[in-house]
Write a protein that binds this DNA or RNA. Sequence first.
DNA 1: GAGGCGGCTTCCACTGGGTGGAAGAATGAC
DNA 2: GTCATTCTTCCACCCAGTGGAAGCCGCCTC
Lengths: 251, 251
Amino acid sequence: MAGGQREPGRTVTSKVLAILGAFDAAHPQLTLTDLARRSGLPLSTAHRLAAELERWQALSRAPDGRLRVGLRLWELGQLAPGSLRELAHPWLQELFVSTGENVHLAVRDGLEVLYVDKVYGRRAVPIVSRVGGRLPMHPTGVGKALLAHEEDWFVRAYLARELERPTPRTIIEPGRLARELASVRAQGYALTCEEMTLGSCSAAAPILVDGRPAAALGIVLSSRRVRELSRLVEPLLAAAAGVAAACANPQ
Amino acid sequence: MAGGQREPGRTVTSKVLAILGAFDAAHPQLTLTDLARRSGLPLSTAHRLAAELERWQALSRAPDGRLRVGLRLWELGQLAPGSLRELAHPWLQELFVSTGENVHLAVRDGLEVLYVDKVYGRRAVPIVSRVGGRLPMHPTGVGKALLAHEEDWFVRAYLARELERPTPRTIIEPGRLARELASVRAQGYALTCEEMTLGSCSAAAPILVDGRPAAALGIVLSSRRVRELSRLVEPLLAAAAGVAAACANPQ
DNA sequence: GAGGCGGCTTCCACTGGGTGGAAGAATGAC
DNA sequence: GTCATTCTTCCACCCAGTGGAAGCCGCCTC
């Protein structure tokens, strides 16, 4: 009656991970049926595994009964390597206080930037990044700051692909982008204007530890205020240097 | 040769979760042997499962080869219900800017407070809380603010247990603690002085949504500066009210 | 209120992924 | 060199996992 039609070669662990992987920024909560479809598991299997995950609070239920990531996983996530974030936070804070603008910290992961911290005030601003979110490198300030200090082979590999173009102002021509990166490296910071989102522009500086780009610090504002960007470069560079120094010294 | 001595009645999922659960604030990185011992699994089983988790980046390796929670789990954790944190963050920010002190946000989970956000500057201060960390309720400002607005049966149950006493100044006598909670409820905020950590004192206000304590906002300073606490109560209450209003309005 | 529909829960006989002791490899301390 | 500790690999047995099917529940439509 049952059990015969199993998919061979698939571990239970991979199914558990498929369930967890079904959640992402665009799908933070799912019905059981969606969860089964997105994870590629039969409904009854998804049901059984999700129930056990829910019992452990790895998953929890939204008020409407849909499943979402549970508090326990959030807690666990806080144990992930975060020393950079902790060291950098006071500097983000200081930069925010002295400029009043949105400030964020990102690292490279694969071919994308991953935002690891963000400081923002009540002055509402269009959201361009989300802590835990990912964006491609070439249209973002932090991405360009990081890419400009990566090794040649990496940059070549990055440029060799077809690049996304989220707005008409995104630079995707390999030659032009390479020249842009050269100037970012020369001047020590990157500027963008509506390359990721229409309506916002940014400045970003890499945090270099032993010559390697460990992270990047970025500041974002409405593109109506582009002219103010240049005024923000100096405090931005100072904060980036502060974080770099904090990283170099163990204490 | 093998396989016969399995422990029956234990699911694979429970073993995967036991591996994840082996990590906590006191043990953020573990050798494989430690991991096996803490999760109660045979070494070879821990090895096999940990390897699969590592492949998915649910776990990663510290430079010294020990295992720790991976970036992917951190990312997942960011998808956990966090609207409260996001709504509240600008207010934490504002409170930090106007006072320059350490500010944090906590919710109740079970019989403990769970710290969900924290804003701090460069002025180094003794760490009393950690985002993702837990502390008992009765010795902390945020804990008392939350407990004071819980229902009677809950408070009675809380007080009925033997209470931890992290410092000699911690209040653990049920009668005295109950009176303390009554006054916290009456005045709308809680104060502590060296009840959790010698050397620090705090003020905290509950964030009441529909009369239920949804979270608490706390501010911590060195106990040499206790006298300044009273000056901070007003901005603290204003920020708490701001968060409460933001929670009440969907937008 | 009958009928249909979509999503959730339970059931159960078959079977291959999980198992863990043991042996072997790698590393480090003395 | 020896000894101790930790990590990795191996493999034959067998039970936890499996998933199709049937049943259930709430909701909408006619």
